[in-house]
Design a protein around this nucleic acid. Structure first.
Lengths: 335, 335
DNA sequence: GCCACAAATGTAATCGATTACAGTTTTACG
DNA sequence: CGTAAAACTGTAATCGATTACATTTGTGGC
C-alpha cells in the first residue's frame, strides 16, 4: 500500500507537510505543494479514509433504517437522503431491517461503535435495545414519516397525516359516499392512528358512524389490499368507497375489485396514499395523497447533520405539506 | 468516550488483555474474562470500529453502484446484497449514481481510499476514471445484471438475456404474431444487445424480417413506454405485439395503448421483463421474464467476498436461470 | 522441590493518518 | 543591517484499537 510516509519520502518532506499540502494547501509554499502533488501522482496515493476517520473521530457516514427496500415510496425518501448526504460529504449505509427489532438494533449500534455518525429511522420503533438505551441518549437520530411512539428526544420529519385523512374523506363525501371501508397498513404505527383519526373526525362532523368492522388490513402490501377487499365484500353492506393506506394496498384492492367484476369508480371508489410512480398509470389512475418523499429525505439529512454537529434544533417536529391528487379511481356514488 | 484504556483501568488489566478477552476469549482465564466483561458493562464500552478497521486494514463494507433507486428490480437485487452482506459481516454503502460517470467514479474511489473493500456494479460502465484505471486493476469488483463492455478482468452475474429474448419471441410467435414492435431501454448496454440478438435470431429462423423502425425507446422508464407506443402506432403497419425491455416500460405501454382504446391482448400483445411485483397486478397481468434478482444479489456478494479474500474464482461469468411467465397481456393474434 | 514448558498477561510497536508544539527560514520594517 | 513577526516545515504525540514479543505465572514430571 502506498501511504503518506512513502509519499513524504518521495517528495523529500515530512508526513506532516504532505498532510498539510493535501488538506490545508494554504499552509505550504506553492513550491512544496507541487513537489508533494507530483509525489502523490507518482505513488498513486490516496489517503486512507479509515485512518483519517479514526483520528478525527468522525466517520462521515449515516445509517438509514428502512423496513423494506422494495417499496418505491421509501426508496424515493432514500434517494433524497442519498443526494443530500453526498452533497454534504456523507455516505449512506443501508440498513434493511425487515421490520425486525434485532436487525434494527444491530444497525443502530453502528453509531455506538463509530461506524456511523448518525441514524435516520424510517420505521417507527426506538431502534436501540434495552442494553444501549442510555448510550442511545446521545445518538444523533431523526425519524422520517413515522413517529416513534412516546419519543420526545428525537426530531421528526412527517406529513400532516391527520389533515390528509380529512382531505381524502372530504373528497369522497363530496362525491356522495357515506359507506366506507378502510384497508390499513401497520396498525400499531402512529401514522395509522393519525390518518384514521382524521377520517373519523370528518365522519363525526358528517354524522357518519364509524364501525370497527369497516377497518381491515395490517401491513403495507399488495396482498393486504387483496385480502382486505375480500373481507370487505363479505360484509352485508358493501362500501361504496375504500380508503387504502398506501398505494400498494390500493393496487391490490383495484386488482381484486376488478376480479370481482366491479367497475372503478362506477361501482366503488378507491383511494391510495403516497403517490408512488406507478399509481398514475394504473387502470384507473389512482386518487392518492402525494407525499414529498424526496424532500423529506433531504430535510432529514439536514436535521441529522445539525444534530451530529451538536447544533441546537429550531423545532423537534417538522410537518411537510401533502397534496391530494384526484385521479380516476374515485367518482360519484352510483345512486 | 469510553475507550479500551478506560476499561483496562477499570478491570485492572492491560489493554491487550481487554482486547483479547473480547476478540479471543480463549486466550484469557475465565476469571479475567469476567473481570473484563464487568468493566465493559460498567463503562458501557463498545469497541471503536474505525480503530479496529484501520489496524486490520479492512473496512468490511462494500459499495453498491446503482443507477436508480426507485426501480424495484434493482432494489430486489440490493435486498439480496444487503442480506448476504449482513450475514457475512459486511455492511452496504449505497451509491446512487443516477447514471452519471462522475458519481460512479466518486463512489468507486471509496475502495481506493479504504472506505470499502469492494464494489458491486449494477450499471454497465467501468466506474473508475482514467486517473485511477491502473489502481483499479486490483479492486475487487463484480458486475450484476449488466455486462461491462470489453471488461475481462471482473466477474459477471447475469441472466441469459439472449435465451430470454428467444423465449419471449417463441411465445409470441406461437400465438401467431408476425408483426412486432420493440421498446428498448438503454441502447448502449450489453443486455440490450443480447436480448435483441435473441429476438432477431428467432426472427431469422422464422423468416420474419427485422426492420430498424420497429425498435424505439432509450431508457428504462414508464415514459419511454408511453412515447414508444405513440411512435409505434404512427407507423403504417401497426404491430400486433410489443416487446418491452422492462416492466416499467411495459406499464407505460399498457397505459398508453389503453388510452388509445386498444384492448390487450385482443388488439395487441405486450411483454415486459424483470417481473417486478406490481407486474402481476396490472390490468391485464403482464407476461414477463422473471429474473432471480434477489439470488443475483446474494451471489454477487459471495463472489465479491471471494475476490476480497483473494481467493481464485471458479469462473468469471455466472449465468442464472430465467423463467418466462405467461400472463394475461399476451394472447392469440386477432385474425 | 526443581525444572521445563505451557498458559496468561503485560509492554510497546504498529496501523495511517492529523496536529500541537518546536524549530527554522523568510519577510518587514526601522 | 538587525530584529521581531510571520510563514513554513519538522518532530513527535495522538486517535483507539491489535498484536509481536517479553515477562510472569501456573502446571506437570521426576
Amino acid at each position: 500500500m502506498t501511504n503518506i510516509k512513502k509519499v513524504s519520502e518521495l517528495a523529500g518532506v515530512s508526513t506532516a507537510t504532505v498532510s498539510r499540502a493535501l488538506k490545508n494547501p494554504e499552509l505550504v509554499t506553492e513550491q512544496t505543494r507541487e513537489k508533494v502533488m507530483k509525489a502523490v501522482q507518482k505513488a498513486g496515493y490516496r489517503p486512507n479514509w479509515l485512518a483519517t476517520s479514526v483520528k478525527t473521530g468522525k466517520s462521515n457516514s449515516i445509517v438509514v433504517l428502512v423496513p423494506n427496500l422494495v417499496n418505491p415510496f421509501f426508496m424515493r425518501i432514500i434517494e433524497g437522503i442519498e443526494q443530500a448526504a453526498q452533497e454534504k460529504g456523507y455516505s449512506v449505509l443501508l440498513g434493511d431491517t425487515q421490520g425486525k427489532a434485532s436487525r434494527e438494533n444491530e444497525y443502530a449500534s453502528m453509531v455506538l461503535t463509530n461506524r456511523a455518525d448518525g441514524l435516520i429511522q424510517l420505521d417507527h420503533s426506538f431502534p436501540f435495545s434495552q442494553n444501549d438505551a442510555e448510550l442511545a441518549e446521545t445518538v444523533p437520530m431523526v425519524s422520517v414519516c413515522e413517529r416513534i411512539e412516546g419519543e420526545k428526544r428525537y426530531p421528526f420529519i412527517e406529513l400532516d397525516n391527520y389533515a390528509a385523512g380529512r382531505a381524502l374523506t372530504h373528497h369522497l363525501i363530496s362525491y356522495g359516499h357515506r359507506s366506507f371501508g378502510i384497508i390499513a397498513g401497520q396498525l400499531t404505527s402512529q401514522i395509522h392512528h393519525d390518518r384514521l383519526a382524521g377520517i373519523q373526525s370528518v365522519f363525526k362532523e358528517e354524522g357518519i358512524e364509524f364501525d370497527q368492522s369497516m377497518l381491515v388490513g395490517g401491513s403495507y402490501r399488495i396482498e393486504t389490499g387483496i385480502e382486505g377487499v375480500q373481507e370487505l365484500l363479505r360484509r352485508e353492506q358493501r362500501p361504496t368507497a375504500i380508503f387504502c393506506f398506501n398505494d400498494d394496498i390500493a393496487i391490490g384492492a383495484l386488482y381484486e375489485l376488478k376480479r370481482h367484476g366491479l367497475r372503478i369508480p362506477d361501482d366503488i371508489s378507491v383511494t391510495g396514499f403516497d403517490n408512488v410512480k406507478v399509481s398514475a398509470y394504473m387502470d384507473p389512475p389512482l386518487t392518492t395523497v402525494d407525499q414529498p418523499a424526496y424532500e423529506m429525505g433531504r430535510r432529514a439529512v439536514e436535521v441529522l447533520i445539525q444534530q451530529i454537529n451538536r447544533q441546537p434544533l429550531q423545532r423537534t417536529r417538522e410537518i411537510l405539506p401533502f397534496q391530494l391528487l384526484e385521479r380516476g379511481s374515485t367518482g360519484p356514488v352510483k345512486s
